[in-house]
Design a protein around this nucleic acid. Structure first.
Length: 281
DNA sequence: CTCGACGCTGCCATTACCTCA
DNA sequence: GTTGAGGTAATGGCAGCGTCG
């Protein structure tokens, strides 16, 4: 389980906190020792300035144990460890892989102990992560640890990658939805104009015709040809789903949101927004 | 059964590093 | 060499849910 990894991973961090006093709580630390609300409060110490006394640099956990994945220390591609320095937890990456040895390795050379170094995933790692993401956008602890082991990363890094990946996906989807809504709005505006015109014409017709007059003759202005279905009505049937709470028409996300893995109590909605996955009823 | 503490996880906003034009 | 923009790994905070005593 990831649990083991967290324990191991945090071994050095705990030390860092005890020695450094105001050291930051890394996410791993938060997940472990500050997971509780009390713990969180206790851990909410003012973040130390990044350039705090470098002499506070702490010994980091043994590489092999820090990775926790078992394959960490001896991996040909990476060995990763965590280090808590003056409120900054840094990732140190040693790359034997020449392809991507660039930033991280260089950064380490220039390491002055006051900056947060950033891991760059190799193409292979990214590809595998992408593959897994395509299969499932979330990982259970077992999968996470297995994947981390496979990638020679820490489970936390895999977790973060998936988190960020989900965020990117959502952002993209939001952009798509936004564009769709824009077109929808334009279509509705145009439709509204058309109906207004039609209404005006009908009114003009009504007032022009003498009361009691028979049905319009051939001089009657032709009824406007039916306008093409407005954009918002061109939704494919598959996109029309029911609001899960009130069973009125909603959008595709309504069904997708009904993920059994994480059922969230939906309020009683009537106007279900398929784009924001929310409702306002 | 209810309640509070706790642990875990996901989402979100933000930060900070890195690359590239 | 410098700079600004964009991409993205990492961090911190918060909320929801399940478990346990």
């Amino acid at each position: 389980m990831a649990q083991e990894d967290v324990h191991l991973d945090d071994a050095g961090l705990a030390l860092g906190l005890s020695l450094g006093g105001g050291g930051s709580t890394s996410d791993a630390a938060r997940r472990q020792s500050t997971g509780s609300r009390l713990g969180r409060e206790a851990a909410r110490l003012p973040p130390s300035p990044r350039a705090l006394e470098p002499s506070l640099t702490l010994s980091m956990p043994d590489e092999a144990t820090a990775t926790g994945s078992g394959g960490g220390g001896g991996g040909a591609a990476h060995s990763v460890s965590s280090l808590s320095v003056a409120g900054v937890k840094r990732e140190r990456v040693e790359e034997a892989d020449g392809e991507r040895a660039s930033s991280t390795a260089r950064a380490e050379d220039e390491d002055d102990g006051s900056t947060r170094k950033k891991l760059r995933l190799t193409k292979e790692q990214s590809a595998l992560l992408e593959d897994r993401f395509k299969e499932h956008s979330t990982l259970n602890p077992k999968q996470k640890v297995a994947l981390a082991k496979q990638l020679n990363l820490r489970p936390r890094q895999v977790e973060v990658w998936f988190q960020n990946r989900r965020a990117r996906t959502k952002l993209k989807q939001t952009e798509v939805d936004c564009e769709f809504l824009k077109r929808c709005c334009e279509s509705l505006t145009e439709e509204n104009r058309r109906l207004q015109r039609e209404l005006q014409e009908l009114r003009a017709l009504k007032f022009a015709a003498p009361p009691g007059a028979g049905p319009p003759s051939s001089t009657t202005p032709p009824v406007p040809a039916p306008a093409p279905a407005p954009f918002y009505m061109q939704l494919p049937a598959a996109t029309l789903t029911l609001c899960p709470s009130c069973e009125r028409l909603g959008g595709p996300a309504a069904a997708a949101k009904a993920d059994p893995d994480r059922p969230k109590a939906a309020p009683a909605h009537h106007f279900f927004n398929p784009f924001t996955h929310s409702a306002a009823c």
